[in-house]
Each structure stands twice: as C-alpha cells, then as structure tokens.
Design a protein around this nucleic acid. Structure first.
Lengths: 213, 213
DNA sequence: GGCCTTTGCTACGGAGGTGTAGCTTCAGCA
DNA sequence: TGCTGAAGCTACACCTCCGTAGCAAAGGCC
C-alpha cells in the first residue's frame, strides 16, 4: 500500500558500456524480427524487450530505421563470413557439378546453423523503407558477379557458349538458392538440406550436360 | 474571414452505390501499394486518397486487413484471367520447349500489361499479416501442382525420370518465373520480356536435352 | 414539394509510437 | 567519503491511426 501511491518505479537496468548496449539492442531487434516480423520492430518494442527505456535506444541509434540498417549490416557480415568457408577460392581443379553442389549444401547448412540470422536476411524481400534494401542488393550483386565470372570461365569458348545470358543466369541461380533457403526456414522437415542439395546437383549436371554432348 | 471561425467544412463526396464505392476504395488501396508500399495501406490513407472519410470505408470493410484481402482476391482473379489465355489446355501436341517458352512470354507480357496489379501480387513476399498470404499461397500451390503434373506426363517412363524431384522442381521453376516478373517490374529496360523469355527457352531446352540424349 | 432512406460527415476517446528536456542513480576515483 | 561524469529514468507534447455514435445532406418516390 505504501508504495502504491507512487509510480512502481521501474528497476534500474544494469549499466552497460555503449558498445555492449548496442549489441544487446541489435539482438533484441533480431529476436523481434523472428517472432513478430520486421514490421513489429520499433524503438519502443526494442527498448521494452531489452528491459530498458526508449532514451537509451536513442542514445545508440537515431531511429528504428538506423537500427534496422545496422542490424542487417551486422548479420550480413556474419552471414558472408559463414559463406566464406563454403565458397571455393579456385575452382579450376574440381568437377564443376561437385563444386556447385557443395556450395549449395554449404549455404543450406549455414542457414540451418543460424536460422534467426537468415530469416532476417531472406524473408523481408520488399519490406524496409528502401534504405535497408540497399546493403542487401549490393551484397547480392557481388555474389552474382562472382558466379557469372565462374560460369564464363567454365564455358570458355565452347560452342554455343555465347548463347547463354550468363548475367541473367546468375540472377536466376542465386534466387533459386535463396528460395531454397526460404523453404528450409519455413519447413525444415519437408525441405531438408539433402533434398534441396539433390536438386542443386541435378540442375548443375543438367546444365553441364548441355555443353558436353 | 467569415468562414474561418467554423471548420472549413469538407466538400461532400459524390454519392456512390456500395458496389462502386467498394471498387473505388480497392483501386485507391492498389495505388497506395504501388506508390508507397503495402505497409502504407491503412483505413485512413485509403479514405484520404479516395476523397472520403473513414466511416465510409468502415461501411464496406471491417478493417484494413479485410480490405487488403479483398484487393488481393480481386487482383488475383484478374491476374489468373490474364494467364488463362496463356496457359495451354492440352500440351500433348506441341513441342514442350516451345510451350514453356510461350507460357513464360505470356506471363511477362501480362505483367507488363498491368504492372500495378502484378506489383501488388509479386512484391509483398513476406509482408501482410499472414491472413493475406494464405490466398496467394493457395493459388501458387495450384499452379505448382499443374506444372508438376505436366512435367510428370512429359517425362513418362523415360530412363532417369524417377531421379527428378518434380515437386521441388515446380517450386524452383515458378519462383524463377516470378523472379523474372520482379526484375521486369523494377527495371523493364534492363530486363525486357525478350531477354527473360530467351533464358526461359534456354532452360527448357537444356532440361529436355538431358532426357533426350 | 415534402418525406424517408441512404450515404456521407463531424467529433470524440483511445491506443501506440515518436523524440526530447531535464532529473536521478550509480560507480569509480581522489 | 564525497564529487562527478556516464548511463538510465520520468514525463511531456505531439503525431497517426483506430473505431464508433450521432448528426446532416442528397435524392428518389409519392
């Protein structure tokens, strides 16, 4: 009764140095994305989940867009780090179909290893007021360019090689892999990595077959 | 000065019978999606754009979700109607690669013919609070099933036919076509229907080549 | 030309989010 | 042990959107 007359007085949150607070807030935002979708991310929601008040969030980020951009950047870097082990540096030696299959498998395993991260990256295709999308598109363009380069090298001056729209093919292949990632996130049982990888192998072999009659 | 003392008194919107008002409101929502994204669709925004007050909207729809669902249903039906002319009834006769190429071309032309409609359908991959997504997924599942059936018929009992994960392949092919549609909407000059269709033909031929050595 | 139904409007109360100004608490250090 | 700066908190004013209750205008019908 005595304390009811005054506001319950929120417990003081543990103090953290800026860098740690920052990480904690980004973690909170990632969790919100995974439980309630990107749309639910607001300065308010992040502060609440982190057990802190809004001014604390404003101390680290200018607004929720800024926070979201930073989150995608952080997760994007970590995602690329995951893929770095997977994407081969030199592909001159190995069988191209094997290589592609291994990349696909590595990607799907990476998705399964950190579903929350990849959900944040793969699901919001249109969302985010455009400044966020930029970072992602740049990263994807880079991946496409590398893939296209690899295909060009592979085809060399084989007959008919000129007929292939390599850049558009890169687009299609990347988006196919991504789509597999989304299926994996939505229904890991129905679309297990093995199944997705098997199709990747089939497609790679089919493509190569076309150029080795 | 005389009229400044009272509220400016909004001009009375032209009266419309419910059915027409409904259409008009759906049109307004579609325009909002195209100019500002799905996230910007609210009862308020729709009413404003339609030159009408909120209670009028509530007369036709229970809330913005309901409105969005109805819109997707309307546009979905119209989209399917566009595709009806394109998707062949019997495919026993023609060359499969030609058929697939024609379907792809028809689809891309349909997208270009009504970009606003297809933007509403293709762009919001994750958005929309889940009840809206349902309708779309059902339609896609149907398309996938039909495609898968066609491929099964085509393969028949050719050697190796059993090795193909037809259902997953249907997923990949549909999502590839859709991705082409998105490219077309974002950059019609860079990804003209001809270019996209050419790749579709190449992929179809490559696939068939694998089964006709 | 007056009535009555239909369509639209004003006006309210409320929920939730934004960003900021100014006060409080904590912890380390002299 | 008391000061001080960094880290948090409260409180406020503002905005946008939500739904609804009750009033006002149009226009068809007799």
């Amino acid at each position: 009764m005595a304390r009811a007359q005054t506001t319950p007085k929120r417990p003081y949150a543990p103090r953290l140095p800026p860098a740690e607070r920052r990480e904690q807030l980004l973690d909170a935002a990632l969790e919100i994305i995974n439980t309630s979708g990107v749309a639910a991310v607001s300065v308010d929601a992040v502060a609440r989940l982190a057990g802190v008040t809004r001014p604390v969030v404003y101390g680290q980020f200018t607004d929720s867009d800024h926070l979201l951009r930073e989150l995608l950047e952080r997760e994007g870097e970590r995602a690329l780090a995951q893929l770095a082990d997977v994407i081969p540096a030199d592909l001159a030696d190995a069988d191209p179909a094997d290589t592609f299959t291994a990349v696909a498998r590595g990607f799907y395993d990476a998705v399964l290893a950190h579903p929350a991260r990849w959900r944040a990256i793969l699901l919001p295709v249109d969302t985010s007021p455009a400044p966020v999308r930029k970072y992602k598109e740049a990263a994807e363009a880079d991946l496409r360019a590398r893939f296209a380069e690899a295909v060009r090298e592979l085809l060399g001056d084989r007959p008919d090689a000129g007929r292939v729209d390599v850049d558009l093919l890169a687009h299609v292949v990347l988006s196919t892999l991504e789509d597999g990632g989304r299926l994996l996130l939505r229904d890991p049982a129905g679309y297990a990595p093995e199944r997705l990888t098997e199709l990747a192998r089939f497609l790679a072999e089919t493509f190569l077959h076309r150029f080795r009659p």
